[in-house]
Design a protein around this nucleic acid. Structure first.
Length: 894
DNA sequence: TGAGGAACATC
DNA sequence: GTCGGAG
DNA sequence: CTCCGACGATGTTCCTCA
């Protein structure tokens, strides 16, 4: 009578309930077997069983673990408890990697768990050993029959050939392989070739550990970015996109991975070559291994687990994927390490317009270098019909609507999208969080969450546009959620990723509008400047692309009721600086008060009037009285100006004006009763009675502006002319007395530069006193700051209660280095955590600059700062030196 | 019904 | 609005 | 020099949930 198999279950990791032992669990457990030293297999378990070599690697890499470690030599028998004993066998994956062999003493039942393994002899890892076992739990990363690696010598020979040829052409070969295991395997494999090798720091560090156990490594040096020439560089894939590596010229890159067998690999890794050097077993290897173990029952996991299990069953061995549903957890960790997407579901990909667009987007994201990006895009643009060209350029610029004036918000932020992703994938929130935290990249997260759960169909760009429009029209998150679920369910994860990126307005593919302009110019052989100009005039890349395609760019001009991108001013700290920049040219600077309102463009032709905001939105609903009053203008014109809150004899501020922003409903009494009165103060004239004035100098535009008869609610900003820095300084003081922010200085000879933050308009703002505050909370940032604590909440002291009261947050003003230093500091001085926010010891003093202090409900000090920025980290000060609430109050009132 | 959150837009 | 960083 | 990303406060709207 054969014994019952040792019970196995899966619960976020493999668990053997009979002995309460976990095998390579992702999260910290009481007792766990750690098969090898890759980071994803190593959590803070209370007790860790691992090979003594793995233990050495872990110690070197992460320092001595706090866990209790039971290091075992291969074959060393260990009595786990009264009923179970175990020993480890080499797994051949990386140095020190082990399988675990368990025996239940009472009935002799046995179980073998492989961890990651390889059957072939490798250069840097022990040769695998197999033993007969009743139950086998094995990894099946390459569990499809077509994964057959060529003989290792052939692979190595081709790698060496690649390196030699690259060096002969005076270029630098770069080999990408994971810093622990793969990199040393490559290094060892290169021994006979006698090529000079440089190792990236992370690889170098791990290699020094290897060296203690291995005599056959060739000579190597640490990567010197200044003189890499003539060397073979080995580095982990993750640093391949780093600045330092990108800066290296004349490189040829190669990825070393089992996935190289797939034809899409070169494209996916964005390298010049791929070689199938793997530390996993290929399909024949997996089969051979099963034959050696002769198991009665097999559980498979990782990669093509279900497929491989099916193949085994067909051969008469009972085999099951341990739980396809849970694969992601384990695969994910590996993905993160080696920068791969495990399951390549290209086969299920449907060739459609959206798929092509997402490929282009992905390629742009992965391409470094402007020229390559624009060329890629230009080639793509040329293949599109005019209508699809509009859509594609819009979507790639993260926009949705072709007509700028019909632009509406989608109302789909991360909250809505996350809900939809959970629904489509059936994933629970905890797992989703794991993925999103591990990735800290919205696109990759989306891909992984959707991977394998959607039924891709062909979707055209028109259909996608329809989805966006219906999203904009849908009312409420519930309705939007449904639409998103529907479209994601019909898309391949690669396409789903793009759609989510567009929905959340977070494309992040290193594609700015400027680059798209260049691509459009290149695609249709137009000068970039012309395309750019057209974009400013049309306010929309879709239309710009269409015009470039139709070769009608030159016929474009400023048209009333088509808002244009407005000219902006650059900040300048002092009057002297302004004079230096503008004065020398024409010996005169024109000064206007910098009004604190909202920028607006007023269009008027024959009594029809329109008002647009700075980003070309119609302000129709918000300021109807201005639009109405403007109908009294006798002339046809386009004005540039500022909408301000204004009442005779009463000081009104931006704060007052904000109450009217974003309003959809204006009750009757809103502007006749208590409403904040408003006026449009013009400072420029862009078009007048049929003529564009953009190219005219400011003097001329202003002359015409001054001739206009102004209706109610309209005014023109006064100009003062200054002939030296002192006069500017003086005017600045006057402007402040008038409660304005400061000055705008203009070159009277300058044309109107659409959309430019140029040097013809400069702004001088008032600098307030600064505040010394202490940081009380620190938070993780986003995007490129997702790995640092870049968000600081700070407080002042209330001398009455001796409490620290929060007055604001800031990150702006610190350099990357300072943020890194502070991250380290706050990590060490954390008092408590809730979510991403951590309370920190109040021992970092910041000097904060700001524009004003206002009463606020947001922070418990009752005050908030406008435009807070960090001026300095005051290492010379302590918490005793920070500003007091009384001080703040004084500044707020003063 | 009212508080609270998300999304968006303005600076 | 602010700022630092990269091309 | 110019663009871009990653950040600040605050207002309204709209929806959800207790």
């Amino acid at each position: 009578m054969p014994p019952d198999p040792i019970q196995v279950r899966y619960a976020g990791g493999i668990h053997l309930p009979g002995m309460d032992l976990w095998l390579d669990p992702h999260r910290a457990k009481s007792t766990a077997f750690v098969s090898h030293a890759h980071a994803d297999h190593f959590a803070k378990h209370e007790t860790i069983i691992c090979s003594e070599r793995t233990h050495a690697l872990i110690r070197k890499r992460y320092g001595a673990p706090k866990s209790k470690v039971i290091p075992l030599a291969y074959g060393e028998r260990y009595g786990f408890n009264e009923d179970y004993h175990l020993y480890l066998l080499p797994a051949g994956h990386i140095f020190g990697s082990a399988q675990i062999y368990l025996t239940r003493i009472s009935d002799g039942a046995t179980l073998l768990y492989t961890g990651d393994f390889k059957v072939r002899q490798s250069y840097s890892a022990e040769l695998i050993e197999a033993e007969k076992a009743d139950t086998l739990i094995m990894e099946t990363t390459f569990g499809l029959p077509h994964f057959r690696f060529p003989p290792t010598e052939e692979i190595v020979a081709s790698i060496v050939k690649f390196c030699r040829e690259t060096l002969e052409e005076n270029e630098i070969p770069i080999l990408f392989g994971y810093s622990l295991g793969k990199a040393q395997e490559i290094l060892a494999a290169l021994t006979d070739a006698r090529l000079p090798v440089m190792l990236h720091k992370t690889v170098y560090d791990m290699t020094t550990v290897y060296e203690q156990f291995q005599e056959t490594l060739p000579e190597y040096t640490k990567l010197d970015f200044k003189a890499p020439g003539g060397h073979v560089l080995i580095m982990p894939p993750s640093v391949g996109r780093s600045q330092a590596v990108r800066r290296l010229r004349n490189t040829r890159t190669a990825m070393l991975s089992g996935w190289a067998l797939q034809s899409s690999a070169i494209y996916r890794y964005q390298v010049d070559a791929v070689f199938p050097l793997s530390d996993h077993a290929d399909y024949p290897g997996l089969m051979e291994y099963v034959a050696r173990v002769q198991p009665k029952l097999v559980y498979t996991l990782h990669g093509y687990a279900a497929e491989f299990a099916r193949d085994l069953r067909e051969q008469g061995t009972e085999a099951w994927s341990i739980l396809t549903d849970n694969q992601l957890d384990l695969d994910l960790a590996v993905d993160r390490e080696i920068g791969e997407i495990r399951r390549d579901s290209q086969e299920s990909r449907v060739d459609c317009e959206v798929a092509v667009l997402s490929d282009v987007s992905q390629a742009v994201a992965e391409t470094t270098g402007k020229r390559k990006k624009t060329e890629l895009l230009a080639n793509y643009f040329r293949t599109l019909s005019p209508a699809n060209l509009q859509r594609a350029t819009l979507f790639l610029s993260g926009k949705i609507f072709i007509e700028p004036t019909q632009r509406r918000a989608l109302g789909t932020g991360w909250a809505v999208v996350r809900k939809a992703l959970l629904k489509v994938s059936g994933m629970n929130l905890a797992r989703y969080r794991d993925i999103s935290q591990a990735q800290s990249d919205a696109g990759r997260t989306t891909f992984l969450v959707l991977n394998g759960v959607t039924r891709p169909t062909a979707v055209s760009l028109t259909e996608l546009e329809d989805v966006f429009v219906s999203l904009a029209n849908a009312q409420g998150p519930v309705a939007k959620n449904e639409i998103i679920c529907d479209v994601l369910g019909r898309l391949h994860p690669s396409e789903g990723r793009l759609v989510v990126q567009i929905l959340t307005n977070d494309l992040r593919i290193g594609l700015k509008e400027g680059l798209l302009e260049e691509a459009i110019a290149q695609a249709f052989e137009q000068p970039v400047a012309t395309v750019r100009e057209a974009h400013m005039l049309l306010g929309n890349l879709g239309q710009t692309a269409a015009a470039a395609h139709a070769k009608t760019l030159n016929t474009l001009s400023l048209q009333p009721f088509t808002p244009v991108k407005c000219m902006l001013a650059s900040p300048e700290p002092t009057a002297v600086a302004i004079w230096d920049r503008l004065g020398c040219e024409s010996n005169e600077v024109w000064l206007e008060d910098k009004l604190d309102g909202i920028r607006a463009q007023f269009h008027c032709v024959d009594g029809r009037t329109e008002l647009f905001s700075r980003d070309l939105r119609s302000l129709e609903g918000e300021f109807p009285e201005v639009i109405q009053a403007g109908q009294a203008f006798q002339d046809n014109m386009v004005l540039d100006g500022e909408l301000i809150a204004y009442a005779e004899g009463k000081k009104l501020s931006f704060f007052d004006l904000q109450k009217r922003l974003g309003r959809k409903r204006l009750n009757g009494d809103l502007f006749f009763g208590e409403a904040i009165p408003v006026r449009f103060v013009a400072f420029d004239l862009l078009w007048c009675n049929g003529h564009s004035l953009l190219k005219e100098p400011l003097v001329e535009r202003r002359r015409l502006l001054d001739e206009l008869d102004l209706p109610e609610h309209f005014a023109i900003v006064p100009v003062e002319k200054a002939a030296n820095a002192d006069a500017i300084e003086d005017a600045f003081k006057q402007a402040r007395l008038r409660d304005n922010e400061g000055l705008i200085a203009k070159d009277p000879q300058s044309p109107y530069a659409l959309g430019r933050r140029g040097k013809s308009w400069l702004k001088l703002k008032k600098a307030m006193a600064t505040l010394d505050v202490v940081v009380v909370y620190a938070e993780q940032g986003h995007g490129k700051r997702s790995h640092v604590l870049s968000d600081y909440t700070f407080a002042v002291r209330d001398t009455e209660t001796e409490q620290l009261l929060v007055i604001g947050k800031a990150y702006s003003g610190l350099t990357d280095v300072e943020i890194e230093d502070l991250t380290e500091h706050f990590t060490k001085h954390t008092l408590g955590k809730s979510g991403n926010k951590r309370e920190v010891e109040p021992n970092v003093i910041l000097e904060i600059a700001f524009d004003s202090i206002n009463p606020s409900k947001r922070h418990n000090s009752g005050y908030a700062l406008r435009f807070p920025r960090i001026k300095a980290i005051r290492q010379d000060k302590t918490i005793d030196d920070i500003d007091t609430l009384a001080n703040v109050r004084k500044l707020a009132e003063g």
